[in-house]
Design a protein around this nucleic acid. Structure first.
Lengths: 360, 360
DNA sequence: CTGAAAGCGCTTACAG
DNA sequence: CTGAAAGCGCTTACAG
């Protein structure tokens, strides 16, 4: 790896010798329009304060010179950057991609550009990204989940940068949050399976370390089962990576047993895992809902398109992004002093992968 | 919608009265460390030019004050922003998400932050995003495909912002590009099907408007067929949205005919379409490779996990992102004067969805 | 409605 | 190796 400082220096020197960026500047627009720099600035930022004739002349000059205002100068003078930030675990999951897409469209509408950071589920990496964004002067920040170093939230607070936690919503959270209740969602899934007569449950989940959402899901599942005096036995709980492979492998493990030892209902931590389980089922000649019932979480695009259609909880991630952006903008605009929390409801989608209990 | 200028003003006034950002500044670090501001700056940016003792004192002071340098000040003084930009059509497609992920990791390693813009396949939107990024002073830009308004490339050139076109690589392109040859890839697919004995081809494709990649794919398919004096008849070419639904619908259209009128090989514009076709096949009781052969393009994560495994071309999008970032960084660093193009090879993955011709 | 001028928070050529 | 000071390109309180 090269030394970034050296390369930095070199190119900076190459480019200029105290000569500026070489780009067209506001002064040149002012000169061409025959007005002061203040007027040019106003013509763009507070047009109602400039007479129409002057405004037209300024716009004409700006167009003629193809002027693009320098955001750094603007940010320094106004202490406003018009930049927002978003931190997600990974872009490889469509649920986070949809959140970003919702957020970006709202921010763009309001003249904000979005910085995107991916933590890859590593809290240290998330903190680093937030610091980089703070240096860049983000005016607001959205971050998935609340499982982050206290230092991260402290940094945000001490710089008075408004933030929201997205995806999960939890009563009693110290953070403004825009999302749904992971625990309640999994209670609903389990109740659905219980109402179908299932009593023998297995679960395939991603690890709960550094992931408040998974923790809440497991808790929700367990509490709903406990109400019926049921539980997932240790041997019926598979914890591993959130991949189709792990879903498939776990399914084989659970179902390669005498029929009376198999679970009749399998609760998966998300759709991806459930889809893997279903592919293993097809290979084993087992099919839902005859031989077992299975549920996912997320309602991925393919979950309702692949056979058998998967029973799952749908979460409107695009909407989460939209709400998060709006909530942050209302703080930036001074309409409210801190972001309001919003609880969205996850929606149970009953499809053919779950059905009435077929055997004792 | 509110007036952005009004809100801007209001909050700016609220926040300060010519008082600055309220954040800790470099001067304060200098004062605490008992050195000049120049020395603080050097301690961070050119540490080798500062004696160790002084450097330690500066770092200590910076830590004590929890100083984060203001990027706007830095950018203005150095005319360097350490920001790069990337424009993709949409985050909803994992192939572009992977590109971004590769790019981001390389840029982050070199101290660059990434602006992300999505054009949603709308050239006007892409241009707007590029302009916003130029205002923000991006030092380099990567953009998917070359189907963009000339104005976009002109803006980049006139501001001397290095750029690369990603995903497609085309001999004779006026732009530095990092990607693969879409035409060659589809010639290879067709040759594979020809070698299996297929002569009766159908195709299901996304629209080629504003999409150089799709155009190249169709051309590649046609030229490979033409070499064997074959062609896709008008009634065997379906053009529509890049969705599983359209793939399914087109498949039904093509295969709901007397057996001797059906195509034996179906070339799809991408995996998504092919996956939709396969799901329709399952519903119709048809299966590959016995009743037909089918190919995709992209090698999506699920394509090798769903039954039947799909024959497709694998493109390493992560690698495209990595190469794009490296290519741009070498221009920024002054190692080369313009980005070098890189042609990557798409790789044919023969799986069970294609097989020898079963009938005449 | 418009302008002159100070100032935002850094970096860097220059001098020592 | 270190410092004094100019300057990067804008915005904005103040004055008119």
């Amino acid at each position: 790896m090269e030394n970034p400082d050296k390369t930095r220096l070199k190119s900076a020197t190459l480019r200029r010798a105290r000569g500026g960026s070489g780009r067209v500047k506001l002064d040149e627009v002012a000169e061409l329009a025959g007005v002061s720099t203040a007027t040019v600035s106003r013509a763009f930022n507070e047009p109602e304060k400039v007479s129409e004739a002057v405004r037209d002349r300024v716009m004409e000059a700006a167009n003629a010179l193809n002027w693009i205002p320098n955001a750094a100068g603007r940010a320094l003078a106004s202490s406003r950057t018009h930049i927002a930030g978003a931190i997600i675990p990974t872009l490889d999951n469509e649920i986070f991609a949809h959140q970003i897409s919702g957020m970006q469209s709202v921010f763009a509408e309001h003249g904000f550009t979005l910085f995107l950071g991916c933590s890859n589920y590593d809290p240290a990496e998330g903190l680093k990204q937030v610091q980089a964004m703070l240096a860049r002067g983000v005016e607001a920040l959205a971050i998935v989940g609340e499982n982050h170093p206290q230092e991260l939230f402290d940094a945000l607070r001490s710089r008075k940068v408004p933030y929201v936690v997205t995806y999960s919503y939890r009563q009693g959270s110290p953070h403004p949050s825009i999302g749904f209740d992971n625990g309640a969602a999994f209670r609903e899934i389990v109740e659905h399976l219980l109402s179908l007569g299932h009593r023998r449950f297995a679960a395939i989940f991603q690890p709960e370390a550094n992931n408040d959402r998974v923790k809440a899901r497991l808790d929700g599942m367990r509490s709903a089962l406990a109400k019926s005096n049921l539980a997932v036995a240790t041997g019926d709980l598979c914890i591993g990576t959130s991949t189709m492979e792990f879903g498939a492998e776990s399914f084989r493990l659970l179902m390669n047993r005498a029929a009376d030892l198999r679970p009749t209902a399998i609760v998966c931590g998300n759709d991806n895992i459930a889809l893997g389980a279903l592919s293993a089922a097809a290979e084993m000649g087992l099919s839902a809902p005859m031989d077992f019932s299975i549920t996912g979480f997320d309602d991925l695009t393919i979950s309702s398109r692949l056979m058998p259609h998967l029973t799952t909880m749908k979460v409107d991630n695009q909407e989460i992004g939209v709400r998060a952006a709006k909530s942050l903008l209302s703080v930036i605009n001074g309409d409210v002093t801190s972001p309001i929390s919003v609880e969205l409801k996850a929606q149970l989608k009953v499809r053919v992968s779950t059905g009435p209990l077929q055997r004792q």
